[in-house]
Design a protein around this nucleic acid. Structure first.
Length: 994
RNA sequence: GCUCGAGUGGCGGAAUUGGUAGACGCGCUGGAUUCAAAAUCCAGUUUCUUCGGAAGUGUGGGUUCGAUUCCCACCUCGAGUACCA
């Protein structure tokens, strides 16, 4: 019987499902181990071979940990809210829920086919009301909390109210909005209910505010910064404009420092930590205010410019100030003489799009306001300029310019011929600014003279604070996260509005289920898609969602009788809402009373291994850490970091194939044009190195003109290696709708082989995508080679964390390895399973134990690729030894199970076991079988002689010495001399002192 | 520009703290088996060579008895980021 992988795999997949082999219990005597994958968004295109890479790696790890005696939880689910299903709904009218359900079915089928050990009883879907009930619940918890900077944690809003009632807000040290008025306890008590609620909203961890957002008119939605790529929307590539809107925000900035500190204790890839650190962007410095010298236009008014600086120690080097063109003071301080120039400049910068401002980094521009600031220490006059290198959104939108110590200030000063005072001891600044902090002392700076950076910083901040000019401050780049989306297919907010103020709906009435709508687009008057819903109001008497018709104006105006029915929030939550706590919900996914039970979360604690892509570095992986810390503050979870270890798997790229233009046709003129649109298939030119393979040329009467360029991808499944046979190419050109109107007169071929005439193709590594015709589907691989081959091959491709191109041709290697292993225990003639009960020889045991050791090390290091090689070597050696012994096969089946579980189960069963191999203990290697030999490499003899030896684990120092001395090469080197001393360094080097 | 990562045969990639570079696989070449093909098996496959050897891990230096590995400078590629005061 040969290796019928299709039958074997189907059989065991069925067995696992029926026996719930991988179901993890929440109560166990075993130690827990939680292996998590980033759950997929179920897209319409289905899985391609790149998707399972991380899942295979985590599955190997999960299966390995089961062998090592852990109670392993390895769940999977779907991040099923998202824009593609909504856009599909807009195009076709099909409800996103229907699209999503269909896509999930496809995904599940594909995932099952690969033989993952997921515990499907724990599946979650973010779009399932039973799941998003808890997303809504967390939102309410955030709303009902404020951040106490003194205790450095989130607290219930009630504790804030208690303080307000007792002592007003003067003593409160909270993460809150910037523009909060101060009030006393009695003032608080006299505020109206509405006023009080408005104030509280400024402190809540999720709050409503007018924020400048990235509005995408084409999508009718607001996008987060990380959803915009190069100034256009990540999906669709539509233009994005800045616009002010009332939005829900999350006060993630309250956690900036803790998000930074938390990175210290988690084992995540350094590049990922770096990018989060940069994203949070902590900078230490000081706030300093400069008085504007009363100018002739407003001599009675006094103005102050506050600046944030990371280099207060260089304050004596200030020779001018720069304000962002949008800075509110600009209009107030500009002199009449400069008014025209300033206004023209502001107008010009406002016109420049974000894109232009980004692309054009080198141009220096700015304009003098005519006003001067008074240097708080030297008393000198510093001209105030405006320049677009200063951003309104960062710091205070103003900088104190220190040209000798900052590159941009330096360039600005040079360009406008401004003063560049040098405040560094023996440093030449005639060519460039001196930006190094350490190693230089300050000069020309009064009381700072002669001080190094650190001391100067301390001294100046002390002076600034003493003189009331400002204070030391830590600034973060991180901004609060906008949490509203103008979309249909997302979590609805558990919020209704009364008197224009948001009200939370009580937990017992959750979930607030997404309403049905006729149209998925924003309404004609610009409301989000939920504005189309007719049943979308909250009845506070019945606590039910009711028709909007019943909403009276009373709720807003208070002029009519209040009927208790109020409008519900029309926005929905963003994509990252659902993914910010899913890893905890897996612990207890069916719980209807709580997000998860105390018992479950106390048992599972946190994720031991999280595998996913690095593209989520500053999105999901930051937001989820924020929510976790909040949950921790509320005492809901025992850990404030949810994933101890994280691995970023690399991307599997596809190899795209292109037709080179020369092979497709000889001259453009030889191809006739037919049909609508006057298009003909032709070459753009005859340069072989040109990246344009094919051009579509418009015919004007008889003249040919190039109208657009077109790179013509050949579907990878039609090609044979880097060739496409002419029959296939003709078939392709005939059926491809891109060539509907094109008649191909002739196709030239590059050569001919046993399969016929062919055209050579050029290849390039690109991201796998439908539009590039380079997608390789795992289903077909499973049918042709089996899931075990797919699993092993994906690991064999290269290091897990590296991105690498897919090459289907290589799969035959791992496939024939599995066949070889099968053959080892099956008769050539009748195919019967045959295992010998004889004792294994020392040689066979050596192979086995070597393999066990190596595989275990590889798994610990996540180098699954080398494990596959190790298995191959083992089977080759066993084949050479004709070994078909139980003593070898039994442990072999266990150690190969994480990689190739189906064949392992089959062999295990044939060995007479009635249980799943996945529950077997991982075998222990024995050092005594690892003895290679004592290889000795003598190097030289000049007083000291060193040897490199390959140590065997069971050799003692004395034995090594003996082996070294007895070695012929040692004797050769010694040439009869007698060494005084032989020093053996365990592990590596032997020194022989002459 | 900055930050991080990486450069090893025709290709993907091995080489644990410095110790026989090129494991393993693909591809290629030759052979066996076969009416033939597939499949399978065996041998070879870094380069040059006067067949003794010699050179060789992006380039140039350095440390060392010994460097793919450590240090310095440079080159190339990839990823991230975008004027952060």
């Amino acid at each position: 019987m040969s290796y019928h992988f299709n039958e074997i795999e189907a059989k065991w997949q069925k067995y696992w499902a029926e026996n719930q082999t991988f179901k993890a219990e929440n109560i166990s005597d075993k130690p827990k181990f939680y292996v998590l994958d980033m759950f997929p968004y179920p897209s319409g295109a289905g899985l391609h071979v790149g998707h399972p890479l991380g899942y295979i790696a985590s599955d190997i790890y999960a299966r390995y940990k089961r062998h090592k005696g852990f109670n392993v939880m390895h769940p999977q689910g779907y991040d099923s809210f998202g824009l593609p299903a909504e856009q599909y709904a807009i195009q076709t009218g099909q409800h996103p829920a229907v699209t999503t359900e269909a896509n999930i079915k496809t995904y599940r089928k594909q995932l099952d086919q690969i033989g993952f050990s997921f515990d499907w009883s724990r599946e979650v879907r973010t779009s399932d009301p039973n799941y998003y009930k808890w997303t809504q619940w967390i939102f309410i918890q955030l709303f009902n909390s404020w951040y106490n900077k003194t205790s450095d944690k989130a607290e219930d809003i009630k504790s804030l109210i208690a303080v307000f009632e007792k002592e007003g807000n003067a003593t409160i040290n909270a993460a809150a909005d910037d523009d909060i008025q101060s009030f006393t306890a009695s003032e608080w008590k006299n505020f109206s209910e509405i006023k009080q609620q408005e104030i509280l909203l400024q402190y809540r961890l999720t709050f409503l505010s007018e924020t400048e957002v990235n509005w995408c008119p084409a999508l009718g939605t607001v996008l987060a910064n990380d959803e915009i790529v190069n100034g256009v929307s990540e999906r669709g590539g539509h233009t994005v404009v800045r616009k002010k809107m009332k939005q829900w925000s999350m006060r993630i900035t309250a956690y900036a420092q803790r998000l930074l500190d938390g990175l210290q204790k988690i084992d995540w890839p350094q590049p990922l930590k770096d990018s989060q650190t940069y994203w949070i962007g902590r900078s230490e410095g000081a706030m300093v205010s400069f008085d504007v010298i009363a100018s002739e236009i407003a001599p009675s008014q006094t103005h102050k410019i506050s600046v944030f600086t990371t280099r207060p120690d260089t304050i004596f080097g200030v020779s001018f100030m720069t304000l962002a063109p949008e800075h509110e003071l600009v209009s107030k301080i500009t002199t009449d003489a400069q008014k025209a120039a300033v206004e023209a400049y502001i107008k010009a910068t406002a016109k420049r799009s974000e894109l232009e401002r980004m692309a054009d980094v080198k141009t220096i521009s700015g304009v003098f306001t005519g006003a001067y600031a008074l240097h708080p220490f030297s008393g000198k006059k510093a001209p105030i300029w405006i320049g677009d290198y200063v951003l309104a959104g960062y710091g205070t939108g103003a900088v104190m310019a220190v040209p000798c110590g900052d590159e941009r200030d330096y360039a600005f000063a040079k360009h406008f011929d401004l003063d560049i005072p040098n405040i560094f001891e023996s440093v030449d600044i005639s060519q460039e600014a001196h930006t190094d902090k350490e190693g230089t002392k300050i000069a020309n700076s009064d009381f700072l003279n002669g001080l190094p950076y650190k001391k100067a910083m301390k001294t100046i901040i002390y002076e600034i604070e003493k003189r009331g000019l400002g204070y030391g401050k830590i600034n973060y780049r991180l901004r609060d996260a906008v949490f509203s989306r103008q979309r249909y297919w997302g979590e609805p907010f558990p919020v209704y509005y009364k008197n224009g103020l948001p009200q939370m709906i009580d937990k017992q009435y959750l979930p607030i289920v997404l309403p049905e709508v006729e149209k998925y687009l924003p309404t004609e008057d610009g409301k989000p898609p939920l504005g189309n819903a007719t049943t979308w109001a909250w009845n506070t008497n019945t606590n039910k969602v009711v028709s909007n018709d019943l909403v009276t104006l009373s709720g807003v105006e208070g002029s009519q009788k209040d009927n208790g029915i109020y409008p519900l929030e029309l926005n929905t939550m963003p994509g990252w809402a659902g993914s910010s706590q899913y890893f905890n919900r897996y612990m207890d996914p069916q719980n209807n009373d709580d997000i998860f039970s105390k018992e479950a979360v106390n048992y599972w604690q946190d994720v031991d291994l999280y595998i996913g892509g690095s593209e989520h570095a500053t999105g999901h992986l930051l937001y989820s850490r924020f929510w976790q810390k909040f949950m921790f503050d509320k005492g809901l979870v025992p850990q404030d970091e949810y994933a101890k270890k994280l691995i970023n798997q690399g991307m599997i790229t596809g190899i795209s194939l292109f037709i080179t233009k020369y092979s497709l046709c000889d001259k453009p003129e030889t191809i006739p044009y037919e049909g609508n649109g006057k298009i003909v298939l032709a070459n753009s030119d005859y340069d072989h190195n040109d990246s344009i393979d094919l051009a579509i040329v418009q015919v004007n009467d008889k003249s040919y003109g190039l109208i657009c360029e077109y790179v013509y991808h050949v579907p990878v499944n039609l090609a044979m290696g880097n060739r496409i046979y002419i029959e296939n190419l003709k078939l392709l050109l005939d059926t491809d709708r891109r060539f509907e109107n094109i008649e191909i007169e002739q196709v030239l071929w590059d050569g001919e082989d046993k399969n016929g005439k062919y055209v050579s193709l050029r290849s390039e590594v690109e991201k796998m995508s439908k539009s590039k015709y380079n997608v390789v589907n795992p289903d077909q691989i499973c049918i042709d080679y089996g899931a075990d081959s797919l699993r092993m091959f994906e690991m064999f491709l290269g290091p897990l964390e590296q991105s690498k191109p897919w090459k289907t041709s290589g799969i035959s290697g791992v496939h024939s390895f599995l066949k070889k292993m099968w053959k080892l225990y099956h008769s050539d003639t009748d195919g019967a399973f045959y295992v010998s009960e004889e004792e294994a020889t020392k040689e066979e045991l050596k192979t086995l134990h070597k393999t066990i050791k190596k595989v275990e090390e590889d798994i610990a290091n996540f180098s699954f690729n080398t494990s596959v090689s190790t298995f191959m070597i083992a089977v080759n050696e066993l084949t050479a030894l004709h070994c078909n012994k139980r003593a070898i096969l039994e442990p072999l089946a266990i150690i190969i199970e994480p990689y190739a579980p189906h064949i392992a189960e089959e062999l295990w069963e044939k060995l007479g076991h009635s249980d799943s191999v996945s529950t077997a203990d991982f075998p222990v290697f024995e050092a005594k079988y690892l003895v290679e030999s004592s290889k000795v490499y003598p190097v030289s003899f000049n007083g000291k002689m060193r040897f490199t030896i390959e140590l065997s684990l069971d050799l003692s120092k004395e034995e090594i010495e003996k082996a070294v001395m007895a070695h012929e090469k040692t004797q050769e080197q010694l040439q009869g001399r007698t060494p005084k001393k032989v020093i053996v360094v365990p592990g590596k080097i032997v020194n022989i002192v002459g």
